[in-house]
């Protein structure tokens, strides 16, 4: 008798006990611990999370914009151990005109980030002479080469978020109507005027708000289905309305394949609009954003914003 390989034996076992086979490719790297694995949810649409068929894909309304931002930074040198970081951030909104994407708004910023408190007067003056914006990355009295870099990186990220915010604001202001799809959570923009026209498209699922059967339903949505809408708490006391949507069949591909989460400002219409908005996203599956490895969750216009911004920076250094 031929001995079956370990892989086959395990698959047989899973199938024998009503499990589903299929998952990831071979991994070697153990990921960092998750910073916020759990959040909480409050059901809005149904008592328990259900899988809702979205229906036929449907083009999003004319005038919909797509936002993304990028960042680049590098250590240019050091004063003693203090890193002097050159940073670049940019953000843009692309809109569609006759099926072609074109730039509606964009901003960019180039700056220096360093631990200002640790510099001498002369060092500071010289940096100021560059006439680039200078941002403080802070830091304790005690120096730590890695931690100081992390702090500088935080500044860069913060600048990018602000750049995105600026673009969003001018976009919402200039266009009294139409949706804006942003890459990631809408939490930072909830306070803005027009926040109800922002749709967050979240591709990573580090924080889980649901649990038990609700989570199982959400994580195993069939293609073309969404979960019930629920509310999640954002950082402060604010709420965002959110739901999961499966863009591509996931059987054999792993649990999260094609799974995105959509977020809206907490307005009553959100529940009513969830299926329609989901249908828009389904229509965005074509054209495919492959060869980007995140093609199952990254919609083509978002990838184009990113490509555009990357092309703008060029080599940067």
């Amino acid at each position: 008798m031929v001995t079956r390989s370990a892989g086959h034996r395990i698959r047989d076992a899973i199938l024998a006990a009503n499990g589903k086979v299929g998952g990831s490719s071979v991994l070697t790297h153990v990921p960092q611990p998750l910073t916020r694995p759990f959040g909480s949810a409050e059901q809005l649409e149904h008592e328990c999370v259900e899988a809702v068929a979205v229906g036929e894909p449907k083009a999003s309304p004319r005038g919909t914009g797509f936002l993304d931002g990028i960042q680049r930074y590098s250590v240019v040198g050091r004063f003693g151990l203090v890193p002097v970081v050159r940073g670049y951030v940019a953000a843009a909104v692309l809109g569609r005109r006759n099926e072609n994407l074109c730039v509606r708004h964009q901003v960019s910023e180039e700056f220096v980030a360093t631990s200002i408190g640790r510099l001498s007067g002369e060092q500071l003056r010289e940096l100021e002479n560059t006439r680039l914006p200078l941002y403080d990355s802070g830091g304790d009295d005690r120096e730590h080469p890695i931690l100081d870099m992390h702090l500088a990186a935080r500044v860069v990220e913060d600048r990018r978020e602000r750049a995105e915010q600026r673009v969003i604001l001018s976009y919402l202001r200039d266009r009294p109507e139409g949706w804006l799809v942003v890459d990631g959570s809408i939490a930072p923009y909830l306070a803005e005027d027009g926040a109800s026209r922002i749709l967050g498209l979240i591709k990573s699922h580090e924080t889980q708000f649901l649990e038990g059967e609700d989570l199982r339903t959400a994580m195993t949505l069939p293609v073309g289905h969404r979960s019930s809408v629920f509310a999640r708490r954002t950082n402060g006391r604010d709420k965002a309305y959110t739901w999961y949507l499966r863009l591509w069949p996931w059987d054999d591909r792993g649990l999260l394949h094609g799974l995105v989460r959509l977020e809206l400002a907490p307005v009553d219409e959100a529940v009513v609009q969830a299926s329609e908005i989901s249908a828009w996203m389904l229509s965005e599956r074509s054209p495919l954003s492959a060869p980007d490895s995140r093609w199952d969750r990254l919609i083509y216009p978002m990838r184009q914003v990113e490509s555009y911004l990357r092309a703008q920076v060029g080599e940067w250094l």
């Binding site: 099926e99 229509s283 965005e284 599956r285 093609w295 083509y300």
Partner: peptide
């Protein structure tokens, strides 16, 4: 266009050449 392989077009159309085209034209 930025289509890396014709397969990606097949996937996007889910194998149906008559499928409705997506809302965006490829670069």
């Amino acid at each position: 266009s930025d289509l890396a392989t014709p397969l990606h077009d097949v996937v996007a159309a889910e194998g149906d050449p008559a499928a409705k085209r997506g809302p965006t034209r490829r670069t």
